[in-house]
């Protein structure tokens, strides 16, 4: 019988000061970066769809910091946090939001399609479930080439209803591919609550149907996420085959920028906000004596400066010439 990921998880209550402050810095960067995006969106500097990750920062930061730089990352259209956690410079992410030539996708992708091949960040996929087969293929390439890399594949609870989720889990398990499936369960497929889109709301359990080890993790606790991902990644890297973690989290903001939130109550949002991952982790570091007020102020200041620079970079960045409109449709002249 396939059960949850075997062995007790390592202790998640301790963290070195250096690592803890870095995780906090990344979470604050993502939060403040997106808050600035909201402002820039209202000023029409950023257009199109803008899906905010606010509330879910512990998932990307915890998970991506538990991977190696050689590992592949596949994400969704709500992927600003993942790109930033992977180390993509905030300036190139912001320039992408601005549709500029120096954006991380040359302005071709926008918010939903950030790419950074050098950091093995294989992008934001905006058709729900569409990234899973890609992740399976990246893992297949690693396995066939005897690489030790694994592919971390992020997707939401909404994707679990897609055929591509089931096809991909089956194929990855059948061929014992090194994929770590990371389900960011924020309880909503856009505006449809999980109880209204899943006959079985225990997502981790579904992996068991494919013989895939699985576990549920508190996605608001960055250390718990990190420990679970590190542990799962070890098995995947060892050649045990894929693993699925359900990271239980919550989106604090609207699905996209315009969303009257008719589908959930203010009380429910308030309830989850009491488990704000930044607040929880800040308190935890403080309680452990690893974070002073001056440290926190220093991080906030450093992040504010970094975001200011990113905005200036984006503002000053050139637009891709219209003459290059057809560039990169094919490698050369077709």
């Amino acid at each position: 019988m396939t059960t949850a990921v075997a062995d007790p998880l390592p202790d998640t209550t301790t963290v070195t000061q250096q690592h803890g402050l870095e995780l906090l810095r990344q979470m604050i960067l993502i939060r403040r970066f997106e808050e600035r995006c909201v402002e820039l969106y209202s000023r029409e500097k950023i257009r199109g769809f803008l899906h905010l990750y606010i509330g879910e920062e512990a998932v990307a930061v915890g998970a991506i910091n538990a991977l190696s730089p050689e590992d592949e990352v596949v994400a969704t259209y709500r992927e600003h946090g993942h790109a930033l956690a992977r180390g993509t410079p905030p300036g190139t992410v912001m320039a992408e939001m601005y549709g500029k030539a120096t954006g991380c996708s040359h302005g071709h992708g926008g918010s939903m399609h950030l790419f950074d091949a050098g950091r093995r960040f294989f992008g934001g996929y905006a058709i729900v479930g569409g990234g899973l087969p890609i992740a399976v293929g990246l893992a297949l390439a690693d396995k066939m080439k005897d690489n030790r890399s694994i592919t971390a594949c992020f997707f939401g609870d909404g994707a679990v209803a897609e055929g591509e989720f089931h096809e991909s889990l089956n194929l990855a398990a059948l061929w014992k591919l090194p994929v770590l499936f990371l389900c960011e369960n924020n309880l909503y497929a856009m505006g449809t609550h999980i109880t209204r889109h899943q006959s079985q709301t225990d997502i981790a359990l579904k992996a068991g149907g494919y013989g895939i080890p699985h576990d549920q993790v508190d996605g608001m606790d960055v250390l718990a996420v990190g420990a679970a991902v590190r542990h799962a990644a070890e098995g995947v890297r060892r050649g045990d085959g894929p693993c699925l973690l359900e990271l239980q989290t919550y989106r604090f903001r609207a699905h996209s920028m315009y969303d009257p939130e008719l589908y959930r109550s203010k009380e429910e949002v308030a309830h989850w906000r009491r488990r704000d991952p930044l607040m929880l982790f800040t308190a935890r570091l403080r309680d452990a004596g690893l974070l002073s007020e001056a440290d926190l102020a220093g991080i906030e200041h450093e992040v504010a400066v970094e975001i200011d620079r990113a905005v200036v970079f984006a503002e000053d960045a050139p637009l891709e010439p219209v003459a290059d409109l057809l560039k990169d449709v094919y490698a050369g002249v077709p």
Binding site: F122, P133, G137, A141, N170
Partner: peptide, 16 residues
Amino acid sequence: SESAFLGAGIGAALGG
């Protein structure tokens, strides 16, 4: 699983 194995082909191509 046409979608999964065609998508896996894309991923494997991305992977070299």
